[in-house]
Deep mutational scan, measured.
Amino acid sequence: MDVFMKGLSKAKEGVVAAAEKTKQGVAEAAGKTKEGVLYVGSKTKEGVVHGVATVAEKTKEQVTNVGGAVVTGVTAVAQKTVEGAGSIAAATGFVKKDQLGKNEEGAPQEGILEDMPVDPDNEAYEMPSEEGYQDYEPEA
């Protein structure tokens, strides 16, 4: 019985440690998101679009440190934060509304985080759909 109880105690310690790591990862992701939003706020009209992409990228980098179902929630929060940063930029006159959601080359930025393969159960990952990809044929 002692062996059984000791095993359960060790398992509990492992769960607590994993929860603490997840909590730490979420806190880091939130900190990076805040950094990115402050970065966007300090940019001029020309830099705002690039700044919004930076927020998304920093958040995406930190999301990889967070495991399990938390990833889905962090990704949703990050996307809403990026959308909010863009709205703030438009409201303050840093950028025109028609410039939001495009990178410096004018290509749409939507789907940055949505296409990231995420499995809350950590069982399997699927690649994003290939609808947006084109076949590449090298020139002879």
Rank of each mutant, 00 (worst) to 15 (best):
V118E: 12
Q62D: 01
Q79T: 07
T44D: 00
T22K: 00
A11P: 00
K60H: 05
S42C: 08
P128Y: 06
G106Q: 05
N103C: 08
V52M: 14
D115T: 10
M127Q: 12
E130M: 08
S42T: 05
D119S: 04
E126D: 11
V118I: 04
V118Y: 09
V16H: 04
V26G: 00
D98H: 09
K97H: 09
Y39E: 02
K6G: 01
V26L: 08
P108L: 09
T72I: 07
E35G: 04
A90K: 06
T22V: 09
T64F: 12
V52A: 08
G41V: 12
E20L: 09
E35Y: 14
D115C: 06
E137K: 04
A85Y: 09
I88H: 02
E137F: 08
K45M: 15
T54E: 02
V49N: 03
G51D: 01
A78L: 13
S9W: 15
G106Y: 11
A11S: 02
T33S: 07
V37S: 01
K58S: 06
V66Y: 14
H50Y: 14
A30F: 14
T72K: 07
G93N: 04
E126I: 10
V71L: 10
E123V: 13
M116H: 12
E110L: 13
E130K: 11
A56D: 00
H50K: 09
L113S: 12
K96E: 11
G47H: 14
V77I: 14
A78N: 01
Q109C: 07
V37G: 01
V15I: 14
A27P: 00
T44G: 04
K21C: 03
E46M: 12
D121A: 08
Q99R: 06
G36Q: 15
V70F: 04
A53P: 01
T44I: 15
K97W: 15
A11T: 04
K12F: 15
A17N: 08
K6Y: 04
V82T: 06
A69M: 04
G67C: 11
T92V: 13
V74Q: 01
S87I: 14
M116V: 01
E131R: 07
N122R: 14
K21G: 00
T75I: 06
E123T: 08
I88S: 02
S42D: 03
N103T: 11
L113H: 11
F4S: 00
E123F: 08
Q99Y: 12
G7Q: 11
G86D: 04
G132H: 06
G7P: 01
E114T: 03
G73I: 07
A85C: 13
T64P: 03
V63G: 02
E13T: 07
T92E: 04
T75E: 03
V40E: 00
M127R: 05
E110N: 09
A11F: 03
E57N: 08
S9D: 03
D98R: 09
A91M: 13
P120V: 05
P108E: 14
A91W: 11
K32H: 07
E110T: 13
V118F: 12
L100H: 03
A76V: 11
N122S: 08
T72L: 14
A53N: 12
K60M: 15
N122Y: 03
E137V: 05
V40G: 01
A11L: 14
E20S: 03
A124N: 04
A56H: 07
A107K: 12
G25C: 08
Q62G: 04
N122D: 10
N103W: 13
D115H: 13
A27M: 15
Y125V: 13
A89T: 07
E46Q: 07
E126H: 13
V26N: 00
T81L: 11
P138A: 10
K60P: 01
G84M: 15
E61G: 06
T54M: 15
Y136H: 08
I112K: 04
P128G: 05
A69R: 13
N65A: 07
Y133K: 03
I88C: 05
T81N: 02
K10C: 02
N122E: 12
E46D: 11
V55Q: 01
G14S: 14
Y125T: 09
